[in-house]
Computed example of a mutant assay.
Amino acid sequence: MKIKLAAISMAAVLSTATWAQAPVVSVGGSGSVNDRLAELERGFAARSQAQIDQQRQLNAMQQELSELRGLLEEQSYRLEQVIERQRSILAAQQQAAPAPAAPASSAQASAAGDSAAPAPAAQPQAGAASDEQAAYDNAVNLVLQDKDYDAAIPAFARFITQYPQSTYVPNAHYWLGQLLFAQKRFDQAKAQFARVMEAYPQSNKRADSILKLGTIAREQQDSALARQYFEQVLSEYGNSSAARLARESLDSMN
């Protein structure tokens, strides 16, 4: 009996020792934890790449929307200019039209016939206006059609220098600021937007210019100034698309 108990005890000891020396293997098999970590890392990497791709697509869509919006504004502005010019021409023609004369006697008619004929009215310089329009259209088309932004910058700069009294000058400053902003030349862009804000209070580009000044201030880590510009857009242009973007910018800063 003692021999049997000893044998049983010895077997138990050997079994325990054997179990203690056996290698520890995880449930999923050898290296499964590393495999799972690697799989998680691949998942995070794929998700991060997808987010990057989505951001790129969003940036591209925003750029296209900005260009389409700019094109629409340009067409509306040009239509307003055409209508205004037609009104000016019509008013000038009405002022130049002679008043109906009373019937003249034969002597008066003879005297009138002997007098010199009136000089023709001065004609507007159509060539200069045509050159101005062509120069502006060329600069705009470099942006919206050719997308040659490097060439558009000097084109707008030349237009501002050559036609400082043009009604398109505020728009030219704005487009020049946009192009410089896209190249991250923030100080130069800021000067163009500030010019529109300060010198052209009636410009349809003023709200967007103030908005851009706020965006530049945010890019330059001046949060207080950025808020000031965004709040100015909300205060002065509360129902505009620029105000909506200013509100979104303010919310993102909170």
Rank of each mutant, 00 (worst) to 15 (best):
L142P: 00
Q123V: 12
E39N: 14
E132T: 06
A151L: 06
Q228G: 12
L65M: 14
A139P: 06
R244K: 15
F181H: 03
D251H: 10
L180D: 05
V24N: 13
Q192G: 01
V196M: 01
N59Q: 14
A155T: 05
D35K: 11
T16E: 05
Q108F: 00
R85Q: 13
A191G: 04
L142W: 01
L250V: 02
P100M: 00
M10G: 12
A46V: 05
V13E: 03
L234Q: 14
I216H: 00
K190M: 10
K2Y: 06
Q93S: 04
Q81T: 12
T16K: 05
D35A: 11
A101M: 01
L250I: 06
A152H: 01
L90D: 10
Y168H: 03
A11Q: 14
A151E: 10
V233N: 06
R56A: 10
A6D: 04
L225D: 10
Q232H: 06
F44L: 07
N204I: 11
D222H: 09
Q54M: 11
A155Q: 04
R56S: 09
I210V: 10
Q220E: 13
Q165S: 07
A117K: 02
E67G: 00
A116N: 08
V140I: 13
S166V: 01
A46R: 13
W19T: 11
A172V: 00
R195L: 08
L65T: 07
A194R: 08
P98F: 01
S203M: 00
S32V: 12
Y136C: 01
S26T: 12
A99E: 02
A45G: 09
S115K: 04
R227Q: 15
N204T: 13
L245N: 13
L225P: 01
Q221T: 07
A134P: 02
V24K: 15
T167C: 02
L142A: 00
L58D: 12
D114K: 14
Q145I: 14
E73Y: 09
Q81K: 12
R69L: 04
Y229F: 15
A107G: 04
L79P: 08
G238I: 06
V196D: 01
D53S: 08
A38M: 02
Q202T: 12
L142I: 00
E41I: 05
Y168K: 08
E64A: 10
Y174V: 02
A45L: 03
G31R: 07
A122G: 10
A135N: 02
